[in-house]
Design a protein around this nucleic acid. Structure first.
Lengths: 157, 157
DNA sequence: CTTGACCTTCCCATCGTGGGAAGCCCTAGA
DNA sequence: TCTAGGGCTTCCCACGATGGGAAGGTCAAG
């Protein structure tokens, strides 16, 4: 089948399939003489695996590892569990951070009248509070987050 | 003062100050004859405001609005509260999504022995589950998330 | 006057995804 | 058989917020 069909069956976009190929998450697909990529049911299976991993928030690099383990009969479930647990810890940390933010925002919102006058505790606090210079997300201690941005979520469905 | 000092006092990097200027979050700073940017205490105040907003996860575009309202004496606190509430809802949605992911991951991890054998429920589920094709994060219904990625967090401190 | 710390601009990388252009390929219908 | 339109190819750009680093100008202390 062509890339479009594989994409539809795998639940990912054709664009992403090509991308996964270039970054080495997928091995380069066979091509027809005219250059079209050709996929099998097995490939679709892998795509679904990847999709599922993404849905659970695994970064591509981890998914690469997971796929490797999946296809390696000599793997140990210990190794797989480790990867999942590491990711889980990551998720939990982000949860803590977001929860701290949510709390702070709720406090702000609760203190604002929200009327037609200009007085606004929200702005006042944003302006004054040099804030707990420490960490809005609580004591993460070390927290050498390699590449974190605020906007986030999940892949669109 | 120069950009370095302003950055230190404002709690942001010099790099970011320049960036904020190019994207219009900050009005272009005055320059010395040699081209160095010059900042005042007022500018530092604004930087702290921005920093605080970022710490609370406000995206730059929203901070732009907040700064505008902050410096507009004819603002209404209602408007400010609206912005904060919108952001809060965003945060809450991401929290829900992350919590769903966390739950799913915990389930996976709990079912894996984590021993030296290759049998692994984690891999099996990732492989089979075409999964709740719907939405790992629960019924968001519409959910036209404009630009959401999985990896996330807060700005490093 | 030299040295080193600071400043300038410019480009690249991250992470995962989408958009779109330019151009080739393939097939169904006239 | 020709043609239209949809699918495919590659390539580049964008997002958001931030950091890294190069190449080069500036400034103040020694």
């Amino acid at each position: 089948m062509n890339i479009g069909e594989a994409a539809a069956l795998g639940g990912v976009s054709a664009k992403m399939i090509r991308h996964y190929e270039t970054i080495g998450l997928l091995t380069p697909a066979k091509r027809t003489t005219s250059g079209y990529r050709v996929y099998s049911d097995k490939d679709v299976h892998i795509l679904r695996f990847i999709k599922h991993g993404r849905t659970l928030g695994f970064p591509i690099e981890l998914i690469k590892d997971l796929v490797g383990l999946w296809q390696n009969q000599r793997r140990t479930s210990k190794r797989v569990k480790e990867l999942a647990q590491n990711h889980l810890r990551d998720v939990e940390e982000r949860l803590r951070e977001l929860q701290a933010i949510k709390q702070a925002l709720q406090d702000l919102v609760n203190h604002c009248h929200g009327d037609d006058r200009p007085d606004c505790p929200i702005l006042e606090r944003l302006a004054t509070n040099p804030d707990n210079e420490s960490d809005a997300a609580g004591k993460t201690g070390d927290s050498k987050r390699r590449h974190a941005t605020i906007r986030s979520g999940r892949p669109r469905k």
